[in-house]
Amino acid sequence: MIRKLFWALLWLPLLAVAEPGYISDATDLRDGPYADAKTLQSLPAAAPVEILGRQGGWYQVQVGQQQGWVRMSSLRLRAPGAKAGVLDGGRAVATQTVATTGVRGFGKGELQNATPDVPAVDALEAAVVAEADARAFAGQAGLQARPDSGKGGSP
């Protein structure tokens, strides 16, 4: 009983931030974040789930009474059929921009009417980050560059 309560409490912070997700294409709920993990159940497209967390390319989800893992690419954060936008040559287009510029931020019009601000660019020089500071900052968090970095190749 105490053990059960302990495990239940352990999940509390996760449950508190759980957000809804939807299966985009039929997929399997697995018992670990691995492609060869045991299948717990098959989930049909559009099935709603609660997202508990993410580890790399896998979401941990709650489906009914069962918890498991699904591929990130099998899940969307919006209900199927909701919005999707108007398509224009393969690009999604936001059609209604009725809100004021301050609320929606700058768009095409503001950019076209912008006066280039060269002093603002040159002012960026004052806030340059030194390479040593960036390396120390990464080190503080335990970030380690991969040995094959700097080649821009595939990992």
């Binding site: 993410r54 790399g56 390319g57 990130m72 899940l75 969307r76 954060l77 919006r78 919005k83 999707a84 936008g85 108007v86 999604a92 287009v93 936001a94 059609t95 209604q96 921009t97 009725v98 809100a99 609320v103 929606r104 931020g105 700058f106 768009g107 095409k108 950019l111 990464a138 335990g142 970030l143 380690q144 560059a145 991969r146 094959d148 970095s149 700097g150 990992p155």
Partner: peptide, 28 residues
Amino acid sequence: HAGYDPYGLLAVLQTLDSMDSNDGSLAL
């Protein structure tokens, strides 16, 4: 390569995908 979870950009794209595409802040 910098040591981060590489799925960060994918998570951002999922967030954008979940937003209303008529949201003016996404127009540009």
